[in-house]
Amino acid sequence: MNSKPQHEIAAEMATVPTAKVLRTAIDRINEIILGKDRSVRLALCCLIARGHLLIEDIPGVGKTTLAQTLAAVLGLDFKRIQFTSDLLPADIIGVSIFDTERNTFRFHRGPIFSSLLLADEINRATPKAQSALLEAMQERQVSAEGVTLPLPELFFVIGTQNPQHQIGTFPLPESQLDRFLMRIGIGYPDHDAERKLLEGVDRRTLLNSVEPLLEESTLRRVQRKAEVIRLSPALLDYIQALLHATRSAPWLVHGLSPRAGLALSHAARAWALLEDRDTVLPEDVQAVAPAVFGHRLQYTEDTATDAGLGLVDRLIRSVPIP
């Protein structure tokens, strides 16, 4: 653990190369989230690609902890909303309250005005509340009672949800799911990681001791850097071939939109940056494709139960790299 004051570390990181920054950040997160390197990388990749993240897994595998760790390590302004069935849009966005002194309405900003918003159990809220959040995610601005307020330039939403369709949940419609750049799972920890978890300190206390590694400007620099990663025509061909395959595969309910293709290219660039490369390779596309495409695709009924492979893996295997 580093004992230097927070601002010092952050200032130091502002000058070091991106790759090293990212490596350090990943290492730090991995100290808290044990044995989940891939999920951590994907989550970070998602943030670098300026996308929102949906974590779907059973309770207790560390969805919330992952979000919190990310926020802490990246030094982001973090807020959390627990979604419940009686959550109202105003609880997310904010509310105008009559100011008796000035005799006007004053807008009280809701938790959405933050850099990293954790929307816990997003599928327990009513569609109305969900759509308020998702609209803000898409537009990166908030409209409330005739006023339009921009959200911070760095604005991420990490939504979590339980996979099972339970009574009283409102599964996100496909159009809303599309607004999340990625959906990842976390899964059970492996044997060693679990043992370490059981032995070690409670993760939450560990979390409190974490000091931010980056400041906002550094993250923005990283994001800008990701945008200029080279995507050669050969890879564009590949991405198009993948999209085309989803549109013609009979085992899928419907094909992917161009937006999904765009999402894939952004995510692949961010992944290439994480891998410390200046060019996207087919492997990068394949690495992020399950997370980017997973929630946008749907097996036709019954096939899901028969398939041994994951849906996107199956898709990838059916498309030759041009």
């Binding site: 013609s248 595969a249 009979p250 085992w251 036709t300 009924e301 019954d302 096939t303």
Partner: peptide
């Protein structure tokens, strides 16, 4: 690939890709 399940008496649909 088989398409959606059907009830007995209906036509099972398969898609050939």
């Amino acid at each position: 690939h088989a398409q959606a399940p059907v009830f007995a008496g209906e036509s099972a649909k398969f898609s050939l890709h």
